[in-house]
Amino acid sequence: MRTRRVLTTPAERAVHATLHTASLAARPLRRGVDEESAVAAAPHLRVLTGAAALGIADRDGGLLAWDGPYRDLADQFVAAARRAVDGGRRVLISNPTGNDPAVRAVVAQPLLIDGSGVVGVLGVVTTVAPGPGTLAAVTEVARYACSQIELAELDASRARLDRAEVRALRAQISPHFIYNALGTIASFVRTDPDRARELILEFADFTRYSFRSAGEFTVLSEELRNIDRYLTLERARFGNALQVRLQVAPEVLNVVLPFLALQPLVENAVRHGLSGNSDGGTVSIVAADEGTDCVISVEDDGVGMDPELLRSGALDAVVTDTAKPGTSESAHVGLANVDDRLRAAFGNDYGLVVETAPGAGTKVSMRVPKFRAGVRA
């Protein structure tokens, strides 16, 4: 008879099972500590600790979840959890009073995160006297749970930061553009009322999109549509002095990118393209398909800038307000903001690349993946 081949050892199977259980516990904990996540994580944490029953309390000691028998011990766990929260250390109740004399201990282990304090309490019911090995296992499981909760808080902080950065970027939309756009519209009210009405609608749609509250990401087609509104208003002001060239591969129109990622680049290019050039200037916008990525560039043929300013990281200080010659007011076009948001969303390979030199114009490029898991408009 042929012997059956053993693919893994018992130790390997045990390690695999433990890691799988840990990953199952991690998923709900990455949402933070609340009743729903606690109920979902409790069965898996119970397996990891080897407990007869397991409870999870919130940062105030209130019961969120209980998994397993001995529900009559929940009140004693809550009392121990509150003591653990107050003291910031483990509380052990030996031989708790209950309906089953087989229970030997209830352990309340606080979930401690640096900088946040106690975010919850892990409760373990044992039917054997908890020795150093058992207590160490409970401590390690609690530490693992804390790491997942900390990642959840980090995700929440990053989301809040992203929202704050978008709000900051909205605030940086040049007030001079708004004033000038309204002034341009006003100039058409008597001479060309139909044109004035069209520009008012364009301005309304531009501001509605720019100050929308939904989502941190958008698709390239929507971003380009809003840029077209912006350029329509600028061309109404400058006439033939502003030339625009647009080249977009159709297959990249649905690429997802951070909201308002292109607007600062185009506004920057318009200012550069028209700065110090009596014959006007040209802005070129190109979106190309490059395999798994989309490369978007915005280029002007204006005055350029000193590369040393870029090397020093002063992205938001490289453009001066051309509406007031001789001043040094920042254009506030938020290039550093866009660079940070690209890197946060897609990694350090996806920040802005700026090519420039005095008198040679400026080209700003961004590379974004055509697909990235978890990033959607």
Rank of each mutant, 00 (worst) to 15 (best):
R2Q: 09
R4N: 03
V6M: 15
V6T: 14
L7C: 05
T8Q: 09
T8Y: 12
E12F: 08
H16V: 15
T18A: 12
L19I: 08
S23G: 04
S23M: 12
A25I: 12
A26F: 03
L29V: 05
L29I: 06
V33S: 02
D34Q: 07
E36H: 11
E36G: 13
V39M: 08
V39H: 09
A40M: 14
P43E: 00
H44S: 12
L45A: 10
R46K: 15
V47G: 00
L48S: 01
A51N: 03
A52D: 10
R59Q: 11
R59H: 14
D60E: 14
L63S: 10
L63R: 06
R71C: 04
A74R: 13
Q76W: 04
R82S: 08
V85H: 05
D86N: 11
S94F: 12
N95A: 13
P96L: 10
T97S: 11
T97M: 05
G98E: 04
G98R: 07
N99P: 03
D100N: 14
V106T: 01
A108E: 11
A108P: 09
L112A: 02
G115N: 05
V119A: 02
L122Q: 10
V125Y: 01
P130I: 10
P132A: 12
L135H: 03
A136S: 12
A137T: 14
V138E: 04
E140I: 01
A142E: 02
I149Q: 00
E150H: 04
L151D: 03
E153V: 00
E153Q: 15
L154K: 07
L154D: 04
A156I: 05
A159F: 04
L161V: 10
D162S: 15
D162L: 15
E165F: 07
I173L: 15
S174P: 07
S174I: 01
H176W: 10
I178D: 15
N180V: 01
T184I: 01
R190P: 00
P193V: 02
D194I: 14
R197Q: 09
F203E: 01
A204D: 08
R208Y: 05
R208G: 04
F211Y: 15
E216G: 04
T218V: 14
V219K: 12
V219S: 06
L220W: 00
E223Y: 03
E223M: 06
N226F: 06
R229N: 15
Y230W: 08
L231Q: 09
L233C: 06
A236C: 09
G239S: 10
Q243T: 11
Q243N: 11
V248N: 05
A249P: 07
L253D: 05
L257D: 00
P258R: 01
P258D: 02
L262M: 09
L262N: 01
Q263D: 12
A269C: 12
V270W: 04
D279L: 13
D279R: 13
G281Q: 12
V283Y: 08
S284D: 09
A288N: 06
D289S: 15
D293M: 01
E299H: 12
D301M: 08
G304K: 11
G304F: 14
D306K: 08
L309E: 11
A314M: 13
A323W: 09
A323M: 05
A331G: 15
V333L: 13
D339L: 10
A345G: 00
F346W: 00
G347N: 05
D349Q: 13
D349Y: 14
Y350E: 00
G351R: 03
T356E: 03
P358E: 10
G359Q: 14
A360T: 05
K363D: 02
M366Q: 02
V368F: 00
A377E: 08
